[in-house]
Amino acid sequence: MSTPSQTVGPYLALGLPWADGPTVVEEGTPGAVWIRGVVYDGAGTPVPDGLIETWQADAHGRFDHPDDPRGAQPGFRGFGRCPTTDDGEYGILTVVPGALPGEAPHINVSVFARGLLHRVVTRIYFPENTAANAADPVLAAVPAERRDTLVARKSEDGYTFDVRLQGEGETVFFDV
């Protein structure tokens, strides 16, 4: 019987951020990109007391994890964590993951905030992978008119991925 989830509350910034949380890879790593975005509430107001966490495979689509049945590939943390600023912004420095068996390259995202009694989970896909995205079973299960909320946009130093918790253009969230 699982322990229930509760909100991180407004003071999550005390306990959760790490100095190196936003850098899944070190600055200067070949292929490193910034994924940046803003978290918005249902009134279109930026959320200043949220936290984004990311989990992903490495550039070859591998995980440093014993439950990867293909065998763990040591060395890639795969995890990023960034609190939102007063303007609702976050940024994660990482590499674009490789494809996974039967899935297009993607990053899993958890969003925590005051007012969220349970994390909400979404996925970041990449706009250049047109064919792989079209064949991705998770994207296929999402209503066609909402799929673009899961696809990042190219930006100057990587990608932009905004999160809209509610309302117009609401991000697709998953039941994990």
Partner: peptide, 13 residues
């Protein structure tokens, strides 16, 4: 929770 809960149904992952 008023302005922060998603209104669309969650998609099974």
């Amino acid at each position: 929770t008023g302005l922060r809960h998603p209104k669309q149904p969650l998609v099974l992952l």
